[in-house]
Structure formats: structure tokens, C-alpha cells
Design a protein around this nucleic acid. Structure first.
Lengths: 104, 104
DNA sequence: GACGTTACTTTCCAATTCGGAAAGTTAAAT
DNA sequence: ATTTAACTTTCCGAATTGGAAAGTAACGTC
């Protein structure tokens, strides 16, 4: 039984996984939508997004929507790739666990 | 896009996932084996195992092996169930991410 | 039967991380 | 010029995580 592929610390945290899962499905998502799904406060979401942006995984774009200022978040190519790798690592984990016959 | 099933905090941490993945495949594993796979120090492994034991997820049994004292770790039924649920949550995450066409 | 060794366990401590509240910022609406 | 909406940053406190080192328990040895 060998060590599994490494999990990305910038994505592994639950709120970040949620955010990433959403972003993987869309070209961009609204701040408010992510906050709702990740179920965190403004400040916490903002901090997670900053961290992910710092890692080069997402970009934030402010755009006027109905006059109001909104922030749209998107994966960068790097972010998409990192998330894909992270998912693969999780898949590997699931797979390794799936041969769960009771052997010794 | 709805919130995904919750991830179990007692299992989500990387070292714990590794430990759980191993345990899911065997009836019991040696302390030393887990330490090697999780790639952590004695003290850290011991603490993770204590935490998982406290959660009712694993049991530790000391047994003499070749004269020497060894500790064998096993999932409880509850632990197995919790890990299964956790894996299902990860699967759901993977699945939700998998429709990753670029839609909006 | 004192002593060393092995195999953990617990304590100590520092570094991160995480979260919310509250204060700060900025651009648009009035 | 003010207000307001939509974040962002600061300011905490609490919890996690990790290693080193000290502690403990069970043998094995002499």
C-alpha cells in the first residue's frame, strides 16, 4: 500500500472544495453565489478567494451588473488544472478504499 | 447548485484520510505501517489515532508480536460507516465537478 | 530483579489556520 | 455631498497541527 498522490492544501479545506467544485462547472460565478454555497460569511469567503487568487488559482473581476458592483470569480487555467489533479488524488483515495474487502 | 453533503471533520484531514483509506482495506493495521504511510512522526500518528478513537472510529489493541509489543488499529463499525459516508461526500463532489463543461 | 530497549503516549510549545465581528474601502445611486 | 451595497481588511480568539522531548509500560537480558 503506497502513499497516495498529495492533496493540494490550497484546495483541500472544505469551503475551498465547495468553491472549486462550483467554479469547475461555470466560466464564472458571483461572489454572493459562492458565499451561499460555501455557507460562510463575507469576510471568510473573501479571505478564501484571496488565498486562492494568491495561489494563482482564481481571478476576481469587478463588473457592474444592473448598476451595482458585483464580483465575478473564475478559475484560471492553473486553478482548473490544480483542481483536476486534486480530484484525481481524491479519486485515487476512493479507489484505494474501494477494494475494501476485509483482507489482511 | 446545492451544497454538497458535509465532510467529516474527524476524517477530512489528509493524514486521517490516509489512515482511513488503509484501514478500510484491512481488518487491522500496525501502528508502524500507518506511520509510514501517513508519513508522520510517532507523536502525531498517536494523536490522530487518539482523536479517531475518541470519535469512536477506531480501536487500538496492544498485542505481543514476536515477543515485542505492537499496536494494531482497526476501524469500528461506526468508523467504517463514517468513512464510507465521507467517501460518498467526496464522490458527490467529484461528480458535481465532473459535469465540468463551461456553462454559465 | 535492576536495567536497557522498544513502542508507543503525553506534554510542551510554536506556527498556522479558521472563523466571525467590526471597521475600512470604493463605486454607484440619490 | 451622502448614502448604500458589496466586498476587503483588520482584529481578535479558538482550534489544529506538527515535531521534540519527556514519560510510561512491557519485555528481554544479564
Amino acid at each position: 500500500m503506497k502513499p497516495l498522490p498529495p492533496l493540494d492544501p490550497a484546495l483541500h479545506q472544505p469551503a475551498r472544495l465547495q468553491i472549486a467544485a462550483v467554479l469547475s462547472n461555470v466560466s464564472s460565478a458571483e461572489f454572493a453565489k459562492l458565499r451561499e454555497i460555501a455557507d460562510v460569511s463575507d469576510s471568510v469567503l473573501s479571505k478564501h478567494l484571496s488565498a486562492m487568487a494568491e495561489a494563482g488559482y482564481v481571478t476576481l473581476k469587478k463588473a457592474a451588473m444592473d448598476g451595482r458592483q458585483r464580483t465575478w470569480i473564475s478559475f484560471t487555467r492553473k486553478g482548473r488544472k490544480a483542481f483536476k489533479a486534486h480530484m484525481a488524488a481524491l479519486q485515487a483515495l476512493v479507489a484505494s478504499a474501494e477494494q475494501a474487502a476485509t483482507a489482511e
